[in-house]
């Protein structure tokens, strides 16, 4: 075998192995997705949306309590997390620029985005649940807020920096004060990007389970009082899936399906906003 033939052979082997691993990897992921869709659609029915949790054995159980609980936990988290994240990001991009403080905040936020979320749960347990004496929806929302802030902060920072400085200069030249320039020019220019960041941030915290296990805990019935333990889709999914009852497991799949579809569509919408922006 000549040297060239050998190189081509090795090349073909590597190409084959790479393609194979891509097929294997993607195959696994498709497997998970199809299991999710098949079991989810099978478990989906109107009862899911109209009924609360029920004891195992009667087929009346629904997920209304978990859906509403999840919505409240995530909405409050967004209510706190979005403004805080956007304002902090504004500081980095508009005031702090490349200062040491800004760079440190950027780095720490990057790290926090990958840090274990269960630790945030432990922290919130210590500062909220323990002093209050009981689990609560607020504790869950606070944990999610803490997870959300660095994500929103970093995307806002990145997106505001994309706004051309000539726009800012033009506004300054007209005599506008800085806060007006930021709110009326910079925010407007970066609207799509900020919105994408918000969508991705919400999508990320909506799938969090670990930090809710011992903050908002769980409830098998509808509760809309944020001072009380509150059901979430994720914790309900965990409890139902690990239970020995078939009808509960089925509800677990329904929850998994609804949650993943919600998160996937947020991600897809987020990307579309950015694409639309780019094509303009």
């Amino acid at each position: 075998m000549t040297h060239t033939q050998k190189r081509i052979l090795i090349n073909n082997i590597v190409m084959f192995l790479s393609t194979l691993s891509a097929v294997i990897g993607i195959g696994f992921l498709l497997w998970i997705l199809s299991v999710l869709v098949i079991n989810g659609l099978d478990a989906l029915s109107m009862i899911i949306f109209t009924n609360e949790g029920a004891p195992p054995g009667n087929d009346n159980g629904g997920l209304k309590h978990a859906l509403i609980g999840q919505l409240m936990l995530v909405s409050y988290a967004a209510l706190f997390g979005v403004p805080l994240g956007v304002l902090a990001g504004t500081y980095l991009s508009e005031y702090g620029l490349k200062s040491k403080l800004s760079e440190t905040i950027r780095d720490i936020s990057d790290i926090m985005m990958s840090a274990p979320s269960i630790v945030i749960g432990a922290f919130v347990y210590a500062i909220v649940v323990s002093p209050m004496g009981h689990f609560s929806g607020w504790a869950g929302s606070i944990a999610l807020t803490i997870i959300m802030i660095p994500i929103i902060l970093r995307t806002t920072d990145d997106m505001l920096q994309l706004v051309p400085s000539t726009l800012r200069e033009a506004a300054f030249a007209l005599g506008a004060p800085k806060y007006k320039v930021i709110i009326q020019i910079v925010y407007r220019g970066a609207k799509a990007g900020i919105l994408t960041g918000v969508l991705l941030g919400v999508a990320r915290v909506a799938g969090e389970t670990a930090p809710l296990l011992f903050t908002s805990f769980n409830d098998n019935f509808l509760n809309m009082d944020m001072n009380q333990p509150m059901a979430s889709l994720t914790v309900t999914m965990y409890n139902y899936a690990t239970s020995p009852y078939e009808d509960w497991q089925k509800l677990g799949w329904a929850a998994a399906f609804i949650l993943s579809m919600f998160i996937l569509s947020l991600n897809i919408f987020g990307r579309l906003f950015l694409l639309k922006k780019k094509n303009k």
Binding site: L29, I32, L33, L36, A203, R204, A206, G207, E208, T209, T234, M237, Y238, A241, G252, W253, A256, L259, S260, I263, L264, N267, I268
Partner: peptide, 12 residues
């Protein structure tokens, strides 16, 4: 997109 699917689903 698969990276965005919550880990609780992989566990289940």
């Amino acid at each position: 997109l698969l990276a965005a699917i919550p880990s609780v689903i992989y566990g289940m």
